[in-house]
Design a protein around this nucleic acid. Sequence first.
DNA 1: CGGATTGAGTGACTCCGCCT
DNA 2: AGGCGGAGTCACTCAATCCG
Length: 301
Amino acid sequence: MSKPSPARYRTTNWSSYNVSLRKRGALLIWVDKDMVWRAPRDGRPGRPVVFSDAAMQFCLSIKVLFKLPLRQTAGMVASLLRLAGLDWPVPDFSTLCRRQETLAVQIPYRRADGPLNLLVDSTEIKFLGDGEWQARKHGVQGRRQWRKEHLAMDPDTSDIRPVEFTPSRDGDRLGQIPAGEQIGTVTADGAYDTRRCHKAIIERQAIPIRKNGRLWKDDCGAARARNETLRATRYYGRAFWKRWTGYHTRSRIEARMRCLKSFGERIMARDPDRQTAEIHIRVALMNRFNALGTAEIVRGA
DNA sequence: CGGATTGAGTGACTCCGCCT
DNA sequence: AGGCGGAGTCACTCAATCCG
């Protein structure tokens, strides 16, 4: 048996790995200045991770951005690094695939002062194709597979905050917002008007807001808070309420949804975890580009 | 030192989509 | 419709590291 070639990549000077890419000319605008290509020692037994999560996210970002398959992504990243004059190894496409499954994508976001007001919406993204493997894997036959994707936008910065991405039959959760962060209001449509959602929102001491609806039974804190909101809405009327809650800004999150869809209607990954990672990478890219500059619209004199 | 653990590389398998 | 190439995933193997 022929033994694996000595290294497809030249041996690397590991000590140079911690050099900030930005200092290298910032060839790649979405690379964080603190990005470390090589994974730090984690002290666990076993073969250590070669590539850091940041490196993985970078490679997968290239993949998403240029709509490349895994194999071509590895080649493109190698080429980019060469252009940047960096002698760094590039993960194998198989490594990319495996690490994508467990990758915790870092989604950059900016924060304005004051409590966070969230606009929540969801959209659906189609699986790759309708092949038999899906029916086999997911036990659903003859039905198109969709993933529901939840986005929460911070209207102050237009950044998308970490989202929950669940199979459509699962419930909704207000996850991934740091526990220390104060949430002011959560604005969502009727799809989120469930007791579980309200419970999650009330637990964070936030005010849930929705368009219209009937009163619930006053049997728990979540229901009472919701009823109060509804009564206020009815009392003051829709127009005032709209101004009060800024509901019209919902159109902004729908614009962000369209933006997200511009990455393509389909996700390449087949496994749910990898799909989640892929969506998160799209969101991270959107926020990154958003942070580069957003049009500021002011009323004329 | 050697077993346990875990990540990376390799080849094979399967699916998708294009082409004929 | 079927062939074929490209692509994603998986099982297996190898390699590196920890720990008793």
